[in-house]
Design a protein around this nucleic acid. Structure first.
Ligand SMILES: [Zn+2]
Length: 196
DNA sequence: ATTTTCAAT
């Protein structure tokens, strides 16, 4: 009865940062919230949890680095070893081609990890479709953040001042549309037909 | 054939 990590121990995201970055505005930056759960054998309850959030790194002071790679940088510090674990990421943009391939490679090399990714918007720069498909084929679950995940993040990662999550009027409509678009991307089978 | 958006001028 002591392993629980009180939410107040963690640094929480500013309210405005969340609503602004995880809304429909197409910002030139990316936030990523993560939740890592480590399991022991067949136990239902995690023996350890790591939660937090980060932002991509701009040029100053160091080299630029996308949010997903910043996240991968953190993983060794948790000493996951070969322990069964689930990782859930909530990202304001979906992974780009390069990041998707890096995440896919991580999954292939760490078969004890299962990865779920929820994204607020689809980052549609060259190669993104192939990247997302490859990531899914490596075993990741990829989906759009609906009001359910938005609410979860609001309650888990945000300094919400005790306020209830209030979705934008058109959230469901927008996210349903994006979900359909994402479905089209990751349902596509690697094409023996496309070469005809 | 495939929607510029993880920024600094
Ligand atoms: Zn990237």
């Amino acid at each position: 009865m002591e392993a629980d990590q009180a939410p107040s121990d963690r640094h929480l995201m500013d309210k405005y940062t969340f609503t602004h970055n995880f809304g429909e505005t197409q910002l030139h930056q990316t936030y990523l919230c993560y939740e890592v759960k480590v399991f022991k054998d067949d136990s239902q309850d995690p023996v350890k949890e790591f939660k937090g959030f980060l932002r991509n790194q701009g040029r100053n002071p160091g080299p630029r680095r996308h949010a997903e790679l910043c996240f991968l940088d953190l993983i060794p510090s948790w000493n996951l070893d070969e322990k069964l674990c689930t990782i859930t990421c909530f990202i304001s943009w979906s992974p780009c081609y390069d990041c998707a391939l890096q995440l896919a490679a991580f999954l292939v090399e760490n078969s004890h990890v299962s990865l779920s990714i929820f994204c607020a918007r689809i980052y549609s720069i060259s190669g993104y479709k192939q990247g997302l498909l490859a990531l899914q084929n490596a075993g990741a679950q990829i989906a759009i953040m609906t009001s359910k995940e938005m609410k979860y993040c609001w309650e888990t990662f945000v300094d919400n001042k005790g306020q209830e999550f209030q979705p934008q009027d058109n959230l469901d409509k927008t996210r349903n549309y994006l979900s359909m678009e994402l479905e089209k991307i990751i349902r596509k089978t690697e094409g023996w037909m496309s070469s005809l």
